[in-house]
Amino acid sequence: MRYPSAIKQVVLFALFLLQGFAVAQDFPPAPNPPRLVNDLTGTLSAEEVGQLEQKLLAYSDSTSTQVSIVLMGSVGPYDISDYAFQLGEQWGIGGKGKDNGVLILAAMDDRKVFIATGRGMEGVIPDALAKRIVTDMILPNFKMEAYYQGLDQATDMIFKLASGEYKADEVLSEGDSGGSIFFILLLVFLFVILPIIKNRKDNNNHMGGRGGGIDFWTTLMLANMLGGGGRSSGGGSFGDFSSGGGSFGGFGGGSFGGGGAGGSW
């Protein structure tokens, strides 16, 4: 009896270690730069990925609801539902506190798909409706290898269900203006207050021999001016960029509580 229990312990320990490895490796890190559509298998063409990304990005910009698509090979020993919740949680799809994220996860080799709804989306997309989206839109298309059409129709339906639940948040633009106020204050400090201080010092030092000090301050101010100019033009181009709907800002830290439904084709 002694030996089997010892062996059992060793095996259990080894399994424990392996499990640690599995957990560490099985979840791909969040995409960098952040993207809403992540095809890790190369199933979709670059054009299709781009179209889906544009569509999801426009929706996320106008409603703040983040719908993300992930295509991968296999979810390994996990239940696809369990994997989807953990992946969504780790990437933080959806806004923090609002938890308004949706993850459409397809495991191509396993031929399984799951729509995981964030905690904040469970009300607008109840499980029964998620199930219907999967059985009516995704599975029939996926059976015919029309992966893009399936995802396209499914996201259309999700948009329809979810629209109106969350308005585009003004928080982002408020945050921006706060940043620019800080920037203006910094400029005021550098170009108004610093020169005043400097002038006073100069007046005090009229008879002093610290000519080198003036050179130093002038250089610093010139450098600041140049730096400031460079920065403000950078800010302008960044503004143009985002108004053109260029790229996705990243996942917000949303949380998943187990909502959603799936199926296999």
Binding site: S81, P126, D127, F256, G257, G258, G259, G260, A261
Partner: peptide, 16 residues
């Protein structure tokens, strides 16, 4: 529908 709800509940139980 009940089955879908039941599955969803089992999922939520395992997450919780």
């Amino acid at each position: 529908e009940l089955q879908a709800q039941l599955e969803g509940t089992e999922n939520r139980i395992s997450v919780a």
